[in-house]
């Protein structure tokens, strides 16, 4: 990726928010702190769809075991970032 490291967070966040906006949120607001399960009620199939979109966008593979550390959108950004950096 050509993004500078300081912009990478924002780039990943915007990409994720773009993928997630088709799912309604309970609060009506989608932010970095949105809880993927509690606020978005993403089922496992929808979650897999989102992950595949992100994987293809950045040409990375996300290990399924990383999901144990993910609650919010920002958590997912934090997991994706080092994988994107390692392909730069």
């Amino acid at each position: 990726m050509s993004s500078e490291p300081k912009d990478l967070d924002r780039d990943i966040l915007e990409t994720l928010l773009g993928s997630l906006e088709r799912f309604p949120t309970k609060s009506g607001e989608l932010t970095a702190q949105t809880d993927l399960s509690a606020d978005l009620s993403l089922d496992s199939v929808s979650m897999m769809e989102i992950l595949v979109e992100i994987e293809d966008h950045y040409d990375i593979s996300l290990p399924l075991n990383m999901m144990a550390n993910v609650t919010t959108v920002q958590d997912l950004v934090d997991q994706i970032k080092p994988l994107v950096e390692s392909t730069s």
């Binding site: 897999m48 994987e55 040409d59 593979s61 996300l62 290990p63 399924l64 075991n65 990383m66 392909t87």
Partner: peptide, 22 residues
Amino acid sequence: GADFFAFKHNDAGDLRKRLRRM
């Protein structure tokens, strides 16, 4: 504790993509 990835069901092309990315 291994890192594990899923490839699309019965899709050898997707398996290849996953291995390439590794």
